[in-house]
């Protein structure tokens, strides 16, 4: 922590990026070009730092908001085995949130600051979690499709140029793959179950398919951050490329499940060696992104409420810690990362 603070101080005295020694820029570019990892104490361009904070915060926020649609079914899970699996999954998501906030903190921000921005609507989370879980099968559809899309997106991040993020992703992707298999298995049990269960599974896939495709973000020609992120090797593949890869993975899986994907235009394109698929409703995507999806209000309100209602608990823990702190620390430690040297521009 001390090292990071020192580094930030250096940055501050140097002022704007223009003043930074050109050698540092060259060293950074060379490290990225050579596929080396950028570490917290390394020099990095302000915009690289800001992009990473934005992306990692959004990722962390998605993990914790993403607990809600699934937690919605914990108390109604239809068997004790499924209930245990679902509880473990939601617990993992909280853990992923913790990894990602920690990783983001290496960039000179703090979890508190990021949560405040989430609660104020200044940072986003994945648009997918603004859809409601209406039946038990939705839990399976989220595992199969939503986690599947997340994995397709996130596996390349294991090779992201920023070391702490890449390492967090290695751990997260292992657990996500496990969740995805469990979701698939849940849907398989429904699909092969009674007629009512099969219908429930099909209905869930119908509702989650398109939102899952939207998880890859806007089409390449409308993606504002893509080009720079790819140059910095934060991103390795374009949105459309990952989306196509996901469709190619899902089509045979849907067949194996005995469920249909709700897109009459999906067909194998021999020439291109991949599936063609129908047009995404980008107007819906934009509406959800702007806060007008089915659950935006509910999700953020629950998060804010949990945070506000928990304030007295956090205050108590802090007061207790202060009372029982070792006596020798006469000089109060500075609040970690209380004044980030690199304010992050918000996109929302």
């Amino acid at each position: 922590m001390a090292a990071v603070t020192a580094d930030q101080t250096t940055q501050k005295t140097l002022g704007t990026e223009d003043a930074v020694d050109a050698d540092r820029v060259a060293a950074f570019d060379a490290a990225v070009a050579a596929d080396e990892r950028i570490e917290p104490r390394d020099w990095m361009p302000d915009a690289y730092r800001a992009t990473l904070v934005r992306q990692m915060a959004q990722h962390a926020h998605s993990e914790i908001i993403g607990m809600q649609p699934e937690a919605n079914w914990i108390t109604r899970a239809p068997s004790l085995r499924r209930k245990a699996i679902l509880m473990a999954k939601v617990q993992d998501e909280a853990g992923h949130g913790l990894y990602l906030y920690s990783a983001a903190e290496t960039l000179g921000t703090s979890r508190e600051e990021l949560l405040d921005k989430l609660h104020a609507g200044r940072q986003r989370y994945s648009s997918i979690f603004n859809y409601p879980t209406l039946t038990w099968a939705d839990v399976g559809a989220i595992g199969w499709l939503v986690d599947g899309a997340a994995i397709t997106n996130q596996v390349p991040l294991c090779r992201c140029s920023y070391g702490p993020y890449a390492r967090a992703m290695v751990r997260i992707c292992k657990e996500e793959s496990f969740h995805q298999r469990q979701g698939y298995e849940l849907l398989l049990a429904l699909s092969r179950g009674t007629e009512a269960q099969h219908a429930m599974a099909q209905d869930a896939v119908n509702r989650w398919w398109w939102p899952s495709l939207m998880m890859f973000g806007p089409p390449d020609d409308a993606s504002s951050h893509s080009e720079q992120s790819m140059a910095w090797k934060i991103k390795r593949h374009s949105n459309d490329e990952l989306r196509r890869r996901f469709v190619d993975i899902c089509v045979p899986q849907a067949e194996a499940l005995g469920l249909e994907l709700p897109d009459p235009d999906i067909r194998w394109n021999e020439e291109l060696g991949r599936h063609d698929f129908g047009a995404i409703d980008w107007a819906e995507f934009q509406a959800v992104l702007k806060g007008n999806g089915p659950c935006n209000e509910q999700r953020i309100t629950q998060r804010r409420t949990a945070h506000e209602e928990g304030a007295w608990v956090r205050d108590a823990a802090a007061a207790y810690a202060a009372k029982h702190a070792p006596a020798q620390s006469s000089t109060p430690a500075p609040a970690p990362n209380s004044a980030p040297a690199h304010p992050v521009e918000e996109t929302a």
Binding site: I64, M67, Q68, A71, I74, T75, L80, K83, A84, M87, A88, V90, Q91, A94, G95, G97, L98, Y101, R111, Q302, T305, A306, H307, E309, G310, A311, V313, R314, A317
Partner: peptide, 26 residues
């Protein structure tokens, strides 16, 4: 304890309460 999921005062408690709930369910 499962009812706490998504409502805990701090992220660490989301993990802890779910963990206890899982042990008890087991």
């Amino acid at each position: 304890l499962g009812e706490w999921a998504g409502h805990a005062p701090v992220l660490e408690e989301e993990v802890a309460l779910a963990n206890i709930a899982l042990d008890l369910l087991g």
